[in-house]
Each structure stands twice: as structure tokens, then as C-alpha cells.
């Protein structure tokens, strides 16, 4: 494991902790897209199907369990917790899951490294992760009131993707046979989706003003 990969995982972990902090302590999920959270739960469920059959390290297994557990518990809180669910922006969060999931599934069936059940679902999870943030970005654009924690959550998620790209570049030059076009292109698309958000995040940070997106 290199430093970029570790930094990526830690930013990812931090993003999840920020979101859980908001939900647990403020008992609010205002501005958080349930659609995006449900898509992440599906992403982790399909990617970590090998959790019992393929062991890499205790670190990997532990992180997989954390990402699975946190994504499903966030979904549970937003849907069923008696206080948290009342703060959910139901009417604004109208993105259709199928609109993203179906093309990703078709693409995974067409473009993959191996045509096996696990490999196709693993590839599907890569494609879906790339676009899973879209409902969240649409919700931000609609509500336009972004509290600090929600802003930090999205910033950290974007940071995680940025570090993973550095990790791939590092591994490409240090490891033989490390060539994974599908992972790279999906990851690059995912990172680019954050570019616009990053631009406004830095602008607000530079001017020391509250983050606000243009209409």
C-alpha cells in the first residue's frame, strides 16, 4: 500500500464519519441525497461480494465492513429513524435510480475484463460508483443551502477520488502488469464530476464565505 492509496482511504473514511456525525449528533440529514446513499449501498454490496472468499489483509476486510455497515446504516437512518427522516428533503431528491443503474448494468455486461458473475457485478459497481454522486449534486443545486458538514462530506469524497488517481499512477510505474483501463476511466469520470463543486468550494474558502452554488 502506498501513501496515496492510504490518503484516499482515509479521506473516504473521514467523509463517511462526517456524514454519520451530522446524522447522529445533529439528527439531521437535510441536504443529503438518499438516492446517492442508496446507490453507494448497492455499490459496496456488489463490489464486496468477495469479502468472504478473497482475503487480502485485515485492513481491507475491516474497511470493507466499515463501508458496507456505514452505507446501509445511513440509508436506514434516513428512511426509518423517527427524527432524522423528517429532515430529509424528499420533494427535492427526485432523481431516478434506474436512470443510472440500468445503463451501468448494460455497460458492465458489454465492457468487462472477464465475463463471470462476480466480475460483471464488480465492474457494475465501478460504473455505478462513478455516477452515484449525481443525485447528491442535483439536490445541492436545487436546495442551494449547503451547511458546512454537507459541503465537507462532498469535498472529502472528491478528495478520496483524487488520491485514488495518484495511487493508480504510482502503481502503474512501480508494479508490473498493473493496467486497468476500466477502473481508471470510471474513476476519472467520477473525479471530473466533482470539478464544478470543487471550483465553488475553493472560491468560498478563498473568500471566506459560505458555500453557495449558482442558480
Amino acid at each position: 500500500m502506498n501513501i496515496f492509496r492510504l490518503a484516499g482511504d482515509m479521506t473516504h473514511l473521514a467523509s463517511v464519519l462526517v456524514l454519520l456525525l451530522k446524522i447522529h449528533t445533529i439528527k439531521s440529514c437535510a441536504g443529503v441525497s438518499l438516492k446517492t446513499q442508496e446507490l453507494y449501498a448497492i455499490v459496496f454490496a456488489t463490489r464486496y461480494l468477495d469479502i468472504l472468499t478473497s482475503f487480502v489483509s485485515i485492513y481491507n476486510t475491516l474497511m470493507k465492513l466499515i463501508f458496507l455497515g456505514s452505507s446501509f446504516s445511513i440509508v436506514w437512518y434516513m428512511k426509518y429513524h423517527k427524527t432524522v427522516r423528517r429532515t430529509y428533503d424528499r420533494d427535492q431528491d427526485t432523481f431516478r435510480h434506474w436512470f443510472l443503474m440500468l445503463p451501468c448494468l448494460l455497460l458492465a455486461l458489454l465492457i468487462h475484463e472477464k465475463f463471470t458473475f462476480f466480475e460483471v457485478l464488480w465492474t457494475f459497481s465501478l460504473y455505478l460508483e462513478a455516477v452515484a454522486i449525481l443525485p447528491q449534486l442535483v439536490l445541492l443545486q436545487r436546495t442551494r443551502n449547503i451547511d458546512n458538514l454537507t459541503g465537507q462530506y462532498i469535498f472529502l469524497l472528491g478528495g478520496y477520488r483524487g488520491f485514488y488517481i495518484l495511487n493508480w499512477i504510482y502503481r502503474y510505474f512501480t508494479e508490473p502488469h498493473y493496467v486497468h483501463w476500466i477502473t481508471w476511466i470510471a474513476g476519472l469520470v467520477q473525479t471530473l464530476l466533482y470539478a464544478d463543486f470543487f471550483y465553488y468550494y475553493f472560491l468560498s474558502w478563498k473568500n471566506n464565505k459560505k458555500l453557495q452554488l449558482p442558480a
Binding site: R5, D9, H12, D50, S54, V56, S57, N60, M63, K64, F67, W122, Y164, N167, E175, P176, H177, Y178, V179, H180, T183
Partner: peptide, 10 residues
């Protein structure tokens, strides 16, 4: 996973 595999990432 084999050396050079992407399956050891999260």
C-alpha cells in the same frame, strides 16, 4: 488477488 490486480483496492 494476483500482483498487479485492482481487487486489493477498496
Amino acid at each position: 488477488p494476483k500482483n498487479g490486480s485492482a481487487k486489493d483496492e477498496l
